[in-house]
């Protein structure tokens, strides 16, 4: 069963699907400290790409550069290109708001809006200017909650506060919230790090299901998780000056069973990190 699934997955990964996001010579800084150096990486459409590496290697910074969230913090800077469907999101005149509508994000700790109901949490993105759907708000909320495998658990609690749900439910609520605006790409920054193993397993199942429709990039420090959910894996490592570099990138099966770089092998076999 598991073997079948694996085979199926690697076949899909080998099959031709174009790149959705291409990072090209990407550098990122916090103040004077360089956090990423010269990252070039093609993320395939409708695949799950895992970004792994030890703490501080820049993996979170990397995905925050993919929807222009890196620049939200003060004193940050980016250079290089990130092409979303061939268009550079860092080109002059590109509105980061438009980029983020196409590239959604789920954060490390579940962060539902505590003053909103479950329904309003999911509808939050839909109610923003320019996205306002005149009819069918209820339908779109239900569809997003079903996609996030949360509908059955909350359909009677839609009017309750989003903060009243369990941690795992809150994280799926955040996934539903991100899916409701129908992005092309979903970035997930260690989405399970604050969750217990059962809630983690549910989210991992969900990620596999969502890969049919969405391009997913997941940052994780859990290598088993990367092996379980992803088609492709990128391994990041800190250079001597602490800037993150992409050491190896390939199909997950290859990276985990037959890494090309000895540092990858050392990390995967647990010799550091």
């Amino acid at each position: 069963m598991v073997a079948m699934e694996r085979l199926d997955r690697s076949e899909r990964a080998a099959g031709h699907s174009g790149p959705c996001i291409v990072a090209d010579g990407l550098n990122a800084w916090y103040g004077h400290v360089q956090a990423l150096r010269n990252i070039s990486m093609s993320i395939l459409a409708k695949r799950v790409t895992a970004v792994i590496g030890p703490s501080g290697c820049g993996k979170s910074t990397f995905i925050r550069c993919l929807n222009r969230m890196h620049e939200v913090a003060r004193g940050t800077r980016v250079s290089g290109k990130v092409l979303l469907d061939g268009e550079d999101i860092y080109a002059a005149g590109v509105d980061p708001v438009r980029v983020r509508r196409r590239v959604g994000m789920v954060f490390q700790k579940p962060n539902p809006f505590p003053t909103m109901t479950v329904f309003d949490n999911v509808a939050a993105g839909l109610k923003l200017n320019g996205l306002r759907a005149p009819g069918g708000l209820g339908e779109r909320v239900e569809r997003a909650l079903r996609q996030a495998a949360l509908w059955d658990e909350v359909k009677d609690k839609l009017k309750q506060g989003g903060a009243a749900l369990s941690g795992g439910q809150q994280q799926r609520l955040c996934i539903a919230r991100a899916l409701a605006v129908e992005p092309e790409v979903l970035l997930m920054d260690e989405p399970c790090s604050a969750l217990d193993p059962i809630a983690t397993a549910r989210i991992e199942d969900l990620i596999r299901e969502l890969a049919d429709r969405y391009t997913i990039v997941i940052v994780t420090h859990n290598m088993q998780q990367a092996a379980r959910v992803s088609d492709m894996t990128g391994f990041f490592l800190m250079a001597h000056d602490r800037a993150g570099e992409l050491i190896e990138y390939g199909e997950t099966q290859q990276v985990f069973t037959n890494p090309k770089d000895e540092q990858t092998e050392a990390y995967i076999t647990g010799r550091f990190g």
Binding site: F107, G125, N129, A178
Partner: peptide, 23 residues
């Protein structure tokens, strides 16, 4: 995280303030 959650949904700066921060 509250501000960023709203920004990541494609909110403008003002929308993030009025819909996430102020509430």
């Amino acid at each position: 995280a509250q501000r960023e959650a709203m920004l990541a949904l494609g909110a403008t700066r003002w929308e993030a303030i009025s819909q996430a921060v102020l509430p």
